[in-house]
């Protein structure tokens, strides 16, 4: 793990509790960002942020430093998301076996003007699609395609094999793609 994180953790374990504030300032943005994408509701994201750092402090002695500190925090945050109102089920949870009801629209919306993709409605459409993903798929898509973590790191966080992570990611991407395809078809009519 990062040397700065390691020395902070050692200081805290040795009794310098105030050093935990430094860990907070180093990592709270990424945890909030992740939580905001997972939960969508600002209050839930704040709850996840708070739960994550309180739990991290209380269980710091169990952190052995094998993984990066951020990976460990993400693991706590991912578990904390389950306890939020919206974190476990999405707005309208889709069936995982057939996340989009089997329909597979083929419409090339990629050639549409760039302005369309910058619009607020398009961004909201992406957020909506992500929010509707079953949690297992949502976690992986948020970590891989939004937060930019590696498949190996996500596999450690979610406790699944790398091939399982890749397969979930693919299903999540197809689901979001199908939602966007439908949205753009409708917006053209």
């Amino acid at each position: 793990m990062d040397d700065a994180d390691r020395s902070l953790v050692e200081r805290i374990k040795a009794g310098d509790v105030a050093a935990f504030e430094r860990l907070f300032s180093r990592h709270h943005q990424r945890i909030y960002r992740f939580a905001a994408r997972m939960c969508r509701h600002a209050q839930d994201a704040e709850d996840v942020l708070q739960d994550t750092f309180l739990a991290a402090f209380r269980h710091l002695k169990t952190f052995r430093g094998k993984a990066r500190f951020s990976t460990w925090l993400y693991t706590i945050a991912a578990n904390s998301c389950r306890r939020t109102r919206r974190g476990s089920g999405a707005v309208a949870p889709a069936k995982e076996s057939e996340p989009d009801g089997g329909a597979f629209p083929v419409d090339d919306w990629t050639r549409r003007p760039d302005a369309l993709f910058l619009r607020k409605e398009t961004r909201r459409a992406i957020q909506d699609a992500v929010a509707e993903l079953p949690k297992d798929l949502r976690l992986v898509l948020v970590f891989r395609d939004m937060e930019g973590l590696s498949a190996e790191e996500v596999s450690r966080i979610v406790g699944a094999s790398v091939p399982a992570v890749k397969s979930r990611l693919h299903r999540a991407r197809l689901f979001v793609r199908n939602r966007l395809s439908r949205r753009f078809q409708e917006s053209r009519r």
Binding site: H28, Y32, E46, L49, D108, T110, M146, R177, L180
Partner: peptide, 26 residues
């Protein structure tokens, strides 16, 4: 093409930073 574009749109999704009030409260 649409799958690639979907991935790109996810990667470009705006980052949501914690409002200062939230960081302070926590």
């Amino acid at each position: 093409r649409t799958l690639k574009k979907t991935i790109a749109l996810c990667r470009q999704a705006p980052k949501i930073d914690p409002p200062q009030a939230v960081s302070k409260r926590v």
